[in-house]
Computed example of a mutant assay.
Amino acid sequence: MNDETSGKASIRRELLASRALLTSRDVEDAAAALAASALELPELAGARTVAAYVSVGREPGTRALLDTLRARGVRVLLPVLLPDNDLDWAAYAGPEHLAPAGRGLREPDGPRLGPAAVLDADAVLLPGLAVDGRGMRLGRGGGSYDRVLARLAAAGRHPALVVLLYGNEVVARVPEEPHDHPVDAVVTPAGTRRFG
């Protein structure tokens, strides 16, 4: 394990421990504020297709945001975790069409569109644990979204990359590895910060 990987593991442990202290009410209140802030983003307001994800546990909540985007007529793509940790995608058809999946995830039960479906996205909402002042995102370490970002880059696609976090998860510095990509913006319950 190199220093960057070791540093990431340490930060992940700290941030997950902090999330574990949140009450259900904290998570609900933050989700409402996150949805309100995210829906004001021009990148989402003008999007025809948004690749997003279903929050689970103490992750910053996405459910209200998903439902509002869908109600606006936005095509929302949600990930389906493949055995090799890559992501397939399926369209979001509402909360009643989310099924339990491995690792405590919830996935859409509709037809699979293939890993390349993300190339149609005008904006991609990324899960994460932290982002720093350069826009470098720290994920959970499974590499699924690293593959998504590499797929977008290889295809010459540049959707808006937005991560949803709690305020304390915007940190001074995230350890960076060569495969890491910066995001364009972070949305917290307190508002939006852009990187550039």
Rank of each mutant, 00 (worst) to 15 (best):
A117I: 08
V131G: 04
V131R: 02
P108E: 13
E176G: 07
L77I: 10
L87P: 05
P108L: 05
R48E: 11
L113G: 13
S6V: 13
V50K: 03
A190M: 05
R12P: 01
G167N: 13
G143Q: 09
L129H: 08
A101L: 14
R137E: 09
V118L: 01
G143S: 11
L149S: 03
G191N: 15
R48I: 01
R140T: 07
A190R: 14
T49K: 01
A47I: 00
V56E: 02
R147T: 05
G61F: 01
H97M: 03
A30G: 03
R25P: 00
R173G: 02
A101N: 15
R70Q: 12
P83F: 04
G7L: 01
R58K: 12
S37W: 07
L138G: 09
R48K: 12
W89L: 06
H181W: 12
V54Q: 10
A71K: 14
G156A: 09
D180T: 00
T5E: 11
D109T: 14
V170R: 06
G110T: 11
A150L: 03
A38Q: 08
V170P: 00
V163I: 05
S6C: 04
P115R: 13
G139M: 02
H179D: 07
A45H: 03
R103P: 00
R63K: 09
T23V: 08
A116M: 03
A90N: 00
R106G: 06
S144T: 14
D26T: 12
P189A: 02
D120S: 05
G139N: 14
T62Q: 11
G141F: 04
V187K: 07
E107Q: 06
G102Y: 12
A38C: 06
E176Q: 15
G57T: 11
Y145W: 10
D88Y: 08
S144Y: 04
